[in-house]
Design a binder for these strands. Structure first.
Ligand code: ZN
Ligand code: ZN
Ligand code: ZN
Ligand code: ZN
Lengths: 142, 142
DNA sequence: GCCTGAACCTCTATTCGCTTTAGCTTATAC
DNA sequence: GTATAAGCTAAAGCGAATAGAGGTTCAGGC
């Protein structure tokens, strides 16, 4: 029987996060000691490792929920799992594209500023006026 | 005098978002009509455009707050603005690296799955076992 | 002066994936 | 027996908005 702290150490997950996963139904409800502390089996450790690894690869908790369910039914076709992964890949590729464009713009504005007063700052100039940009950066942020 | 809807259209910002920016003190409190509706000047439009453009380049609202303050003091040195931009660039470059590694892993697992039953699904296999990965993906998600 | 409909208002809740805080209780080792 | 590490719950907070409910104001036409 493993404590929550052991799971935490073995998977690099904060204790609170493990409890959070239980709360949203991603981890099964753990058994408890007489005093109310959670105790886990190896299979819970495996499940948590699966969740964390999937998170590291960028899957959303919702996708992970689906993947876990599939993983629990070994006889089913894996088409669904593959399509989730392909969807994730497409998303990553899209974000990559946006970030690459962003990087270019940022690099350019940083490089072009000669570092005098704010009045002549290239950085601020670009921020004030999108027409100085080479790309469209549609969408926001990330 | 411009209405909030006009600002919204001209900058591609949702009306709610403009009010939100006011609420968090990023936009100045707008003047009001007798009936309580917001009315804006051109300078408010400029400020909002600055904010949105900065957001598109991935700056956080906190960074934007600093940049706006600098922008309001033309006589100051632009070193600070430049350093905010460089910081942003570094962040983008880091995320790019992570995403590129992610993309590789995802691509590989998708490509290697022969699409049979869940029991032999390469996608799920990789998710269960990080040792199948080529990279470390330290950190999570994005 | 009134009607209509678009645009505006406030306030609250929700999203995602956790993290933090506050205030306790339990387990373990000496 | 007691110190201390580790555990517990419940609630709030983060960033950056978005969405909805339910009500008010504005501009134009008649
Ligand atoms: Zn500069
Ligand atoms: Zn631009
Ligand atoms: Zn498969
Ligand atoms: Zn891995």
């Amino acid at each position: 029987m493993l404590t929550i702290g052991t799971l935490s150490r073995k998977t690099g997950t904060k204790v609170q996060t493990i409890r959070y996963y239980e709360q949203i139904g991603l981890m099964n409800e753990a058994g408890r000691t007489a005093g109310g502390q959670r105790r886990y089996f190896e299979k819970d450790l495996d499940r948590l490792a699966f969740i964390r690894h999937s998170r590291q690869l960028g899957f959303s908790l919702d996708s992970i929920r689906e993947l876990l369910e599939l993983s629990d039914n070994p006889s089913r076709s894996c088409a669904e799992a593959d399509s989730i992964a392909r969807r994730q890949l497409r998303q990553v590729e899209q974000r990559l594209k946006r970030l690459q464009a962003l990087k270019k713009e940022l690099k350019r504005m940083v490089a072009e500023c000669e570092g005098d007063s704010v009045a002549e700052c290239k950085v601020l100039e670009v921020l004030r006026d999108h027409s100085e940009c080479l790309t469209d950066h549609d969408g926001i942020g990330a």
